[in-house]
Design a protein around this nucleic acid. Sequence first.
DNA 1: CCAATGTATCTCAGTACTAAGACAACTGGG
DNA 2: CCCAGTTGTCTTAGTACTGAGATACATTGG
Lengths: 171, 171
Amino acid sequence: MADHVDRVVQQWGAERPDLDVSPMEVIGRLKRLTRLVDAELKRTFAEHDLDAASFDVLATLRRSGPPYRLTPTGLLQSSMVTSGAISQRLDRLEARGLVTRTPSGSDGRSRDVALTPEGQALIDRALPDHLATEHRVLAGLDEPQTEALVEALRTLLVHLGDTSARGPAPE
Amino acid sequence: MADHVDRVVQQWGAERPDLDVSPMEVIGRLKRLTRLVDAELKRTFAEHDLDAASFDVLATLRRSGPPYRLTPTGLLQSSMVTSGAISQRLDRLEARGLVTRTPSGSDGRSRDVALTPEGQALIDRALPDHLATEHRVLAGLDEPQTEALVEALRTLLVHLGDTSARGPAPE
DNA sequence: CCAATGTATCTCAGTACTAAGACAACTGGG
DNA sequence: CCCAGTTGTCTTAGTACTGAGATACATTGG
């Protein structure tokens, strides 16, 4: 079964047979798949009055464990956005009463961002639905294929330096 | 070698051992990898005074073959954005003299979008550099891994319906 | 102890997008 | 032939982001 990228590659083969467009087989598909998956996930988030950005912050706080508290820098390092984006995400979540921002005890520059009970309840409610959606999106893949996919993706990520906490862009 | 997603999955395992977070192994990596790859590609585009959106339009016209002409709907179907985004992309490219918009002969509602010689020269100049960057990003993968990756991605894309020309979101 | 440098957070202008809908031009069944 | 419904393109308001830089606090070497 051919997908969109197969047609793109075939078109390039006809127009620019001098070029090796094989990397598009991977990168073109990554781009399209991520976009389709994002659209799927978005619907589940919306059912819980969330979007991907808010879910990302709440989930990062939740999985950090009690007391569900991180600094903006901690959130920044898990995310792949700029510090400005984190500030704005926190503004929105704070306005909704899902997180609080308090001065950090030890470092006067920093703040502690913590899940409120409402924030924790929301993420705990949304998470199972989110995982069900993720499962459904991957249902077309069998176990060996999934494992091969995970290994290939991890290899590429490590190759690109995604091994420890880092900001939005590679240097 | 562990990547960022390995740590995320491990955290969830400690906090919510009741949930199966294994789909994150795939989807979390897709998201992060796409973002890292996009950042790499962006630098190459910038060297040619392009961004991903402009490159996408010019490349779609270029690979469609002579006379390098498509309607906005044709461009829309290859892209994964809304019609409003296509209009705006074309505004920018037209202002730079890289494409022209002329009334379509057969259908009074439509326009013909065509590459100018400058547009064609630009995409033909940028394309080899772009492919070199894509190659470099994938350099960590050997041949069998790449093939397994491509097969898994295509399976997922077909599963999500990415088989023919379509708009920005699945229904 | 202080000055220089580094770090944590936030602000703000600019950008490209989406969602919704306007509008004109097509199409097909009666 | 006509008109109801559809299609192709564009417009606009609103959104979340980036990039640049401001500010305040912390750290370090002399």
